[in-house]
């Protein structure tokens, strides 16, 4: 398959993640959308590395590995924040967490 096909799949994944993050009211759905967008970026890195015109050091693979590690840390912190906010507000809907709203 060509690079264009992989990039098209990656664009679709990113758009789906963006829709999930922007249109849902539930905090866990927003986190799911962010994870999908991160995965789309990783897929882009791997696809560009694979279709590079000349043999480079495996920079794309290394970047993807670091991005996966940081995404794991991000998911753990995000879910801990959601549980902490749920204890405080008794809800996980982000529109009900409006203490800072002017």
């Amino acid at each position: 398959m060509t690079l264009t096909a992989y990039l098209a799949v990656s664009i679709a994944l990113f758009a789906i993640g963006l829709i999930a993050a922007l249109s849902r009211k539930h905090a866990i759905f927003i986190l799911i959308g962010i994870e999908l967008m991160l995965s789309a970026a990783n897929l882009n890195f791997i696809a560009f590395w694979r279709f590079a015109p000349e043999p480079h050091p495996p920079t794309g693979v290394i970047v993807a590995i670091f991005a996966i590690a940081i995404a794991a840390a991000e998911a753990a912190i995000g879910l801990a924040l959601i549980i902490s906010a749920y204890r405080h507000y008794k809800t996980t809907l982000v529109e009900k967490m409006d203490s800072l709203k002017g």
Binding site: F14, L18, K25
Partner: peptide, 16 residues
């Protein structure tokens, strides 16, 4: 039964 924010869907489709 949580309403969906259609503005977000619009932004996502536009970015796509």
């Amino acid at each position: 039964h949580i309403p969906v924010n259609w503005g977000g869907v619009l932004v996502g489709v536009a970015v796509f």
